[in-house]
Design a protein around this nucleic acid. Sequence first.
DNA 1: GAGTGAGACTTGATTGACTCAAGAGAAGAG
DNA 2: CTCTTCTCTTGAGTCAATCAAGTCTCACTC
Lengths: 144, 144
Amino acid sequence: MVPTTTEYERLLRDSALRVTRPRLAVLAAVDAHPHADTDSVIAAVRAELGEVSHQAVYDVLRALTGAGLLRRIQPSGSVARYESRVGDNHHHVVCRSCGTVADVDCAVGEVPCLTASDDQGFEIDEAEVIYWGLCPDCSTAPPS
Amino acid sequence: MVPTTTEYERLLRDSALRVTRPRLAVLAAVDAHPHADTDSVIAAVRAELGEVSHQAVYDVLRALTGAGLLRRIQPSGSVARYESRVGDNHHHVVCRSCGTVADVDCAVGEVPCLTASDDQGFEIDEAEVIYWGLCPDCSTAPPS
DNA sequence: GAGTGAGACTTGATTGACTCAAGAGAAGAG
DNA sequence: CTCTTCTCTTGAGTCAATCAAGTCTCACTC
Protein backbone atom coordinates (compact mmCIF):
# COMPACT_ATOMS: atom_id res chain seq x y z
CA MET A 1 0.00 0.00 0.00
CA VAL A 2 2.61 2.51 1.07
CA PRO A 3 5.31 2.74 -1.57
CA THR A 4 8.86 2.27 -0.42
CA THR A 5 11.71 4.65 -1.02
CA THR A 6 12.98 2.24 -3.63
CA GLU A 7 9.65 2.49 -5.37
CA TYR A 8 9.86 6.30 -5.39
CA GLU A 9 13.38 6.05 -6.80
CA ARG A 10 12.15 3.93 -9.66
CA LEU A 11 9.34 6.39 -10.39
CA LEU A 12 11.83 9.24 -10.58
CA ARG A 13 14.33 7.38 -12.74
CA ASP A 14 11.60 6.25 -15.11
CA SER A 15 10.75 9.90 -15.60
CA ALA A 16 14.39 10.80 -16.22
CA LEU A 17 14.49 12.81 -13.02
CA ARG A 18 17.39 12.74 -10.63
CA VAL A 19 16.84 11.05 -7.32
CA THR A 20 17.29 13.54 -4.51
CA ARG A 21 16.21 13.53 -0.90
CA PRO A 22 13.82 16.48 -1.28
CA ARG A 23 12.09 14.70 -4.16
CA LEU A 24 11.69 11.47 -2.25
CA ALA A 25 10.38 13.40 0.73
CA VAL A 26 7.87 15.31 -1.40
CA LEU A 27 6.59 12.12 -2.98
CA ALA A 28 6.18 10.54 0.45
CA ALA A 29 4.52 13.67 1.84
CA VAL A 30 1.95 13.90 -0.93
CA ASP A 31 1.23 10.19 -0.67
CA ALA A 32 0.69 10.58 3.06
CA HIS A 33 -1.39 13.76 2.79
CA PRO A 34 -3.50 13.74 -0.36
CA HIS A 35 -4.79 17.17 -1.42
CA ALA A 36 -2.20 18.90 0.76
CA ASP A 37 -1.33 22.47 -0.12
CA THR A 38 2.23 23.62 -0.67
CA ASP A 39 2.70 24.80 2.91
CA SER A 40 1.67 21.41 4.26
CA VAL A 41 4.06 19.68 1.91
CA ILE A 42 6.86 21.97 3.00
CA ALA A 43 6.09 21.21 6.63
CA ALA A 44 6.02 17.46 6.02
CA VAL A 45 9.28 17.56 4.08
CA ARG A 46 10.99 19.57 6.81
CA ALA A 47 9.71 17.19 9.45
CA GLU A 48 11.57 14.44 7.64
CA LEU A 49 14.69 16.16 6.37
CA GLY A 50 15.18 19.24 8.50
CA GLU A 51 15.52 22.61 6.85
CA VAL A 52 14.57 22.61 3.16
CA SER A 53 14.04 25.79 1.20
CA HIS A 54 10.50 26.53 0.10
CA GLN A 55 11.88 27.20 -3.36
CA ALA A 56 13.14 23.62 -3.55
CA VAL A 57 9.68 22.30 -2.71
CA TYR A 58 8.06 24.55 -5.32
CA ASP A 59 10.59 23.36 -7.90
CA VAL A 60 10.09 19.72 -6.98
CA LEU A 61 6.32 20.00 -7.10
CA ARG A 62 6.52 21.57 -10.52
CA ALA A 63 8.97 18.97 -11.80
CA LEU A 64 6.92 16.06 -10.48
CA THR A 65 3.68 17.56 -11.79
CA GLY A 66 5.26 18.10 -15.18
CA ALA A 67 6.49 14.51 -15.22
CA GLY A 68 3.01 13.26 -14.39
CA LEU A 69 3.97 11.79 -11.03
CA LEU A 70 1.76 14.28 -9.21
CA ARG A 71 -1.43 16.03 -10.10
CA ARG A 72 -2.11 19.61 -9.19
CA ILE A 73 -5.62 20.81 -8.45
CA GLN A 74 -6.71 24.31 -7.62
CA PRO A 75 -10.40 24.83 -6.85
CA SER A 76 -11.53 28.45 -7.02
CA GLY A 77 -10.65 30.29 -3.86
CA SER A 78 -8.09 27.71 -2.83
CA VAL A 79 -4.34 27.54 -3.09
CA ALA A 80 -2.72 24.82 -5.18
CA ARG A 81 -3.09 21.31 -3.84
CA TYR A 82 -1.31 18.15 -4.88
CA GLU A 83 -2.09 14.46 -4.96
CA SER A 84 -0.21 11.37 -6.00
CA ARG A 85 -3.22 9.54 -7.40
CA VAL A 86 -2.69 10.01 -11.11
CA GLY A 87 -3.68 8.17 -14.21
CA ASP A 88 -7.18 7.14 -13.22
CA ASN A 89 -8.78 10.47 -14.15
CA HIS A 90 -10.77 10.69 -10.97
CA HIS A 91 -12.55 13.86 -9.94
CA HIS A 92 -13.03 15.90 -6.78
CA VAL A 93 -15.73 17.11 -4.50
CA VAL A 94 -15.03 20.31 -2.58
CA CYS A 95 -16.84 21.63 0.48
CA ARG A 96 -18.03 25.19 -0.01
CA SER A 97 -17.80 25.81 3.70
CA CYS A 98 -14.51 24.36 4.90
CA GLY A 99 -12.72 23.66 1.65
CA THR A 100 -12.21 19.97 2.31
CA VAL A 101 -11.43 17.98 -0.83
CA ALA A 102 -12.36 14.35 -1.40
CA ASP A 103 -11.87 12.04 -4.34
CA VAL A 104 -14.71 10.88 -6.54
CA ASP A 105 -14.17 8.05 -8.96
CA CYS A 106 -14.80 8.75 -12.58
CA ALA A 107 -17.39 6.45 -14.04
CA VAL A 108 -15.52 6.36 -17.33
CA GLY A 109 -11.91 6.40 -16.18
CA GLU A 110 -10.34 7.37 -19.47
CA VAL A 111 -9.71 10.93 -20.58
CA PRO A 112 -11.58 12.84 -21.66
CA CYS A 113 -14.41 11.21 -19.77
CA LEU A 114 -16.90 13.75 -21.10
CA THR A 115 -17.26 15.03 -24.59
CA ALA A 116 -18.38 18.59 -25.03
CA SER A 117 -21.65 19.19 -26.81
CA ASP A 118 -19.85 21.74 -28.98
CA ASP A 119 -16.08 21.84 -28.67
CA GLN A 120 -15.75 25.33 -30.25
CA GLY A 121 -12.96 24.00 -32.44
CA PHE A 122 -10.79 23.16 -29.44
CA GLU A 123 -8.75 19.96 -29.29
CA ILE A 124 -9.95 18.72 -25.91
CA ASP A 125 -7.80 16.20 -24.05
CA GLU A 126 -9.22 16.31 -20.55
CA ALA A 127 -12.46 17.03 -18.77
CA GLU A 128 -11.90 18.20 -15.21
CA VAL A 129 -14.90 17.91 -12.95
CA ILE A 130 -15.27 19.58 -9.57
CA TYR A 131 -18.37 18.85 -7.54
CA TRP A 132 -19.31 21.63 -5.15
CA GLY A 133 -21.34 21.11 -2.00
CA LEU A 134 -21.13 20.61 1.72
CA CYS A 135 -19.12 17.95 3.44
CA PRO A 136 -20.83 15.72 6.01
CA ASP A 137 -19.50 17.79 8.93
CA CYS A 138 -20.57 21.15 7.50
CA SER A 139 -23.98 20.01 6.32
CA THR A 140 -24.97 18.79 9.77
CA ALA A 141 -23.43 21.75 11.60
CA PRO A 142 -25.22 24.92 10.42
CA PRO A 143 -22.93 27.85 9.66
CA SER A 144 -22.05 29.75 12.81
CA MET B 1 -29.42 41.56 -26.99
CA VAL B 2 -27.43 44.20 -25.15
CA PRO B 3 -29.16 45.04 -21.88
CA THR B 4 -29.91 48.67 -21.23
CA THR B 5 -28.90 50.61 -18.16
CA THR B 6 -32.51 50.38 -17.02
CA GLU B 7 -32.27 46.63 -17.30
CA TYR B 8 -29.14 46.58 -15.14
CA GLU B 9 -30.90 48.78 -12.59
CA ARG B 10 -33.74 46.32 -12.37
CA LEU B 11 -31.31 43.43 -11.89
CA LEU B 12 -29.64 45.25 -9.02
CA ARG B 13 -32.85 46.27 -7.33
CA ASP B 14 -34.26 42.77 -7.63
CA SER B 15 -31.21 41.56 -5.72
CA ALA B 16 -31.67 44.24 -3.04
CA LEU B 17 -28.46 45.93 -4.13
CA ARG B 18 -28.09 49.67 -4.43
CA VAL B 19 -27.81 51.12 -7.88
CA THR B 20 -24.50 52.88 -8.26
CA ARG B 21 -22.52 53.95 -11.25
CA PRO B 22 -19.61 51.58 -10.59
CA ARG B 23 -22.02 48.66 -10.39
CA LEU B 24 -23.75 49.55 -13.62
CA ALA B 25 -20.37 49.95 -15.28
CA VAL B 26 -19.14 46.60 -14.00
CA LEU B 27 -22.26 44.84 -15.25
CA ALA B 28 -21.86 46.45 -18.65
CA ALA B 29 -18.14 45.66 -18.75
CA VAL B 30 -18.61 41.98 -17.95
CA ASP B 31 -21.43 41.73 -20.48
CA ALA B 32 -19.21 43.27 -23.10
CA HIS B 33 -16.13 41.21 -22.24
CA PRO B 34 -17.09 37.71 -21.09
CA HIS B 35 -14.37 35.87 -19.14
CA ALA B 36 -12.57 39.14 -18.48
CA ASP B 37 -10.19 39.22 -15.56
CA THR B 38 -10.38 41.82 -12.82
CA ASP B 39 -7.82 44.10 -14.44
CA SER B 40 -9.76 44.16 -17.68
CA VAL B 41 -12.95 44.97 -15.83
CA ILE B 42 -11.21 47.79 -13.99
CA ALA B 43 -9.92 49.17 -17.29
CA ALA B 44 -13.36 48.98 -18.90
CA VAL B 45 -15.01 50.65 -15.92
CA ARG B 46 -12.46 53.45 -15.90
CA ALA B 47 -12.92 53.96 -19.63
CA GLU B 48 -16.55 54.67 -18.93
CA LEU B 49 -16.47 56.48 -15.60
CA GLY B 50 -13.01 57.90 -15.24
CA GLU B 51 -11.02 57.08 -12.12
CA VAL B 52 -12.52 54.31 -10.01
CA SER B 53 -10.61 52.59 -7.24
CA HIS B 54 -9.65 49.00 -7.81
CA GLN B 55 -11.04 48.25 -4.38
CA ALA B 56 -14.47 49.38 -5.53
CA VAL B 57 -14.34 47.01 -8.49
CA TYR B 58 -13.26 44.14 -6.26
CA ASP B 59 -16.13 44.91 -3.90
CA VAL B 60 -18.63 45.18 -6.72
CA LEU B 61 -17.50 41.94 -8.32
CA ARG B 62 -17.85 40.15 -5.03
CA ALA B 63 -21.27 41.66 -4.33
CA LEU B 64 -22.58 40.82 -7.78
CA THR B 65 -21.13 37.32 -7.66
CA GLY B 66 -22.69 36.76 -4.26
CA ALA B 67 -26.04 37.94 -5.55
CA GLY B 68 -25.83 35.57 -8.49
CA LEU B 69 -25.70 38.28 -11.12
CA LEU B 70 -22.17 37.30 -12.13
CA ARG B 71 -20.31 34.05 -12.12
CA ARG B 72 -16.69 33.77 -11.16
CA ILE B 73 -14.45 31.18 -12.75
CA GLN B 74 -10.83 30.53 -11.97
CA PRO B 75 -9.10 27.83 -14.00
CA SER B 76 -5.85 26.59 -12.51
CA GLY B 77 -3.02 28.95 -13.27
CA SER B 78 -5.33 31.82 -14.13
CA VAL B 79 -6.53 34.82 -12.23
CA ALA B 80 -10.24 35.18 -11.46
CA ARG B 81 -12.48 35.77 -14.45
CA TYR B 82 -16.09 36.86 -14.54
CA GLU B 83 -19.03 36.37 -16.84
CA SER B 84 -22.61 37.54 -16.86
CA ARG B 85 -24.05 34.37 -18.32
CA VAL B 86 -25.56 32.76 -15.26
CA GLY B 87 -28.34 30.34 -14.59
CA ASP B 88 -27.84 28.01 -17.52
CA ASN B 89 -25.09 25.97 -15.87
CA HIS B 90 -22.88 26.03 -18.91
CA HIS B 91 -19.27 24.92 -18.79
CA HIS B 92 -15.94 26.12 -20.10
CA VAL B 93 -13.14 25.01 -22.34
CA VAL B 94 -9.71 26.46 -21.59
CA CYS B 95 -6.69 26.52 -23.87
CA ARG B 96 -3.61 25.06 -22.19
CA SER B 97 -1.38 27.22 -24.32
CA CYS B 98 -2.85 30.72 -24.37
CA GLY B 99 -5.46 30.50 -21.63
CA THR B 100 -8.39 31.49 -23.81
CA VAL B 101 -11.74 30.57 -22.33
CA ALA B 102 -14.83 29.67 -24.33
CA ASP B 103 -18.30 28.62 -23.30
CA VAL B 104 -19.61 25.12 -23.77
CA ASP B 105 -23.28 24.42 -23.36
CA CYS B 106 -24.27 21.88 -20.79
CA ALA B 107 -26.24 19.03 -22.28
CA VAL B 108 -28.37 18.81 -19.15
CA GLY B 109 -28.71 22.47 -18.22
CA GLU B 110 -29.86 21.98 -14.67
CA VAL B 111 -27.59 21.72 -11.66
CA PRO B 112 -26.03 19.45 -10.78
CA CYS B 113 -25.76 18.18 -14.32
CA LEU B 114 -23.65 15.25 -13.22
CA THR B 115 -24.17 12.98 -10.28
CA ALA B 116 -21.10 11.61 -8.61
CA SER B 117 -20.65 7.87 -8.62
CA ASP B 118 -19.99 8.06 -4.89
CA ASP B 119 -20.69 11.41 -3.23
CA GLN B 120 -18.62 10.62 -0.09
CA GLY B 121 -21.52 11.88 2.03
CA PHE B 122 -21.31 15.37 0.55
CA GLU B 123 -24.43 17.34 -0.32
CA ILE B 124 -23.54 18.21 -3.89
CA ASP B 125 -25.30 21.16 -5.51
CA GLU B 126 -23.18 21.82 -8.56
CA ALA B 127 -20.88 20.03 -10.96
CA GLU B 128 -18.33 22.36 -12.51
CA VAL B 129 -16.71 21.08 -15.67
CA ILE B 130 -13.59 22.52 -17.27
CA TYR B 131 -12.46 21.05 -20.55
CA TRP B 132 -8.73 21.41 -21.18
CA GLY B 133 -7.17 21.41 -24.61
CA LEU B 134 -5.85 23.64 -27.34
CA CYS B 135 -7.77 26.41 -29.01
CA PRO B 136 -7.99 26.48 -32.81
CA ASP B 137 -5.20 29.06 -33.06
CA CYS B 138 -2.78 27.21 -30.78
CA SER B 139 -3.46 23.75 -32.21
CA THR B 140 -2.59 24.84 -35.75
CA ALA B 141 0.41 26.93 -34.69
CA PRO B 142 2.90 24.56 -33.00
CA PRO B 143 4.46 25.91 -29.80
CA SER B 144 7.40 28.14 -30.54
C1' DG C 1 -37.09 68.66 -0.19
C1' DA C 2 -34.24 67.93 4.06
C1' DG C 3 -32.64 64.53 7.42
C1' DT C 4 -30.68 60.16 8.39
C1' DG C 5 -28.36 55.77 8.59
C1' DA C 6 -26.64 51.77 6.34
C1' DG C 7 -24.28 50.55 2.59
C1' DA C 8 -20.73 51.82 -0.97
C1' DC C 9 -16.48 54.03 -2.37
C1' DT C 10 -11.57 56.08 -1.68
C1' DT C 11 -7.13 55.88 0.00
C1' DG C 12 -3.21 53.53 1.42
C1' DA C 13 -1.09 49.82 3.59
C1' DT C 14 -0.60 44.84 3.88
C1' DT C 15 -0.83 39.98 3.09
C1' DG C 16 0.58 35.72 1.05
C1' DA C 17 1.20 32.49 -2.69
C1' DC C 18 4.29 32.25 -6.02
C1' DT C 19 8.28 33.55 -9.08
C1' DC C 20 12.93 35.27 -10.51
C1' DA C 21 17.94 35.29 -10.37
C1' DA C 22 22.57 34.04 -9.16
C1' DG C 23 25.58 31.13 -7.12
C1' DA C 24 26.78 26.83 -4.36
C1' DG C 25 26.19 21.99 -4.24
C1' DA C 26 25.11 17.17 -5.56
C1' DA C 27 23.71 13.39 -8.97
C1' DG C 28 25.18 10.50 -12.39
C1' DA C 29 27.71 9.62 -16.91
C1' DG C 30 32.24 8.55 -18.69
C1' DC D 1 37.88 10.45 -10.10
C1' DT D 2 36.38 14.19 -12.96
C1' DC D 3 33.23 16.81 -15.29
C1' DT D 4 28.86 18.37 -16.78
C1' DT D 5 24.35 19.31 -15.85
C1' DC D 6 20.72 19.59 -13.08
C1' DT D 7 19.13 20.70 -8.37
C1' DC D 8 19.03 23.29 -4.15
C1' DT D 9 19.93 27.61 -1.28
C1' DT D 10 19.56 32.30 -0.47
C1' DG D 11 17.33 36.49 -0.86
C1' DA D 12 14.82 39.68 -3.33
C1' DG D 13 10.75 40.68 -5.88
C1' DT D 14 5.96 40.37 -8.16
C1' DC D 15 1.16 40.65 -8.26
C1' DA D 16 -3.60 39.44 -7.28
C1' DA D 17 -6.26 40.06 -3.63
C1' DT D 18 -7.46 41.65 1.07
C1' DC D 19 -7.74 44.66 5.24
C1' DA D 20 -8.73 48.96 7.62
C1' DA D 21 -10.35 53.51 8.43
C1' DG D 22 -12.48 57.36 6.89
C1' DT D 23 -15.63 59.81 3.53
C1' DC D 24 -19.37 59.84 0.57
C1' DT D 25 -23.95 58.73 -1.36
C1' DC D 26 -27.98 56.14 -2.17
C1' DA D 27 -32.58 55.64 -0.94
C1' DC D 28 -35.94 55.58 2.63
C1' DT D 29 -38.60 58.51 5.85
C1' DC D 30 -40.79 62.51 7.50
